[in-house]
């Protein structure tokens, strides 16, 4: 619960500082922002400085990593594969121009497989409800990604995309944890 309350605290200064530390320590395999500089140079800059715009990508990836790590340790009853930050950073990206890293996809696949097992234990109505809402989340991810394709440096879209990816992971994790919690008591 505390981790969640701390989320609003994650101020720009802390995030930018953390991003700054990472950019000096890690060399991405390729430039995460090809073409963005050209776009930015040709238009009026938003309040997000170029440094912040570049940092946002790093923050997003760090955030995604933290989200997955948080989700993986949140429920001790149902451990999932942990994803190393540096691996995620090195290969993961977002938006329409990049695919999420293999480590992220593996963690996602692991959760999805486990969710399929857990859904079998729910009533048809509850299962349909979960599947409908997962579809809503995935449609939202598609919408944001589409918008991000036209606005690749839009910090709000990046933030919402991260949030929605996190929502998807959280839903899969929470359903697994809830059904295990409830069903384990049924099995006593």
């Amino acid at each position: 619960m505390n981790e969640q309350h701390d989320r609003p605290d994650a101020g720009d200064d802390d995030l930018v500082a953390a991003a700054g530390r990472l950019t000096t320590a890690i060399s991405p395999e390729r430039d995460l922002w090809p073409g963005i500089e050209r776009e930015i140079a040709g238009r009026q800059r938003s309040r997000w400085t170029p440094l912040l715009a570049q940092a946002a990508g790093v923050v997003l990836l760090v955030g995604a990593s933290s989200g997955i790590t948080y989700l993986s340790i949140k429920d001790q009853q149902a451990p999932v594969q942990q994803v190393a930050t540096e691996l995620l950073f090195e290969r993961a990206a977002f938006g329409s121009n990049y695919a999420l890293g293999t480590d992220y996809r593996e963690a996602h696949g692991d959760l999805a497989a486990r969710l399929d097992d857990e859904l079998e234990r729910l009533s048809p109505e509850a299962r349909a409800d979960v599947e409908t809402n997962l579809a809503l989340i995935r449609a939202a991810i598609a919408d944001i990604s589409k918008a991000l394709a036209n606005e690749p440096d839009n910090a709000l879209l990046q933030q919402l995309l991260l949030k929605t990816y996190r929502d998807e992971l959280a839903l899969m994790q929470n359903i697994g944890a809830l059904t295990q919690h409830v069903m384990s008591r049924q099995d006593i």
């Binding site: 969640q4 309350h5 989320r7 609003p8 605290d9 809402n133 809503l136 989340i137 939202a140 949030k163 929605t164 929502d167």
Partner: peptide, 9 residues
């Protein structure tokens, strides 16, 4: 003191 509210739809 602290409030976090999140939805998708």
């Amino acid at each position: 003191e602290r409030v976090g509210l999140e939805t998708v739809n």
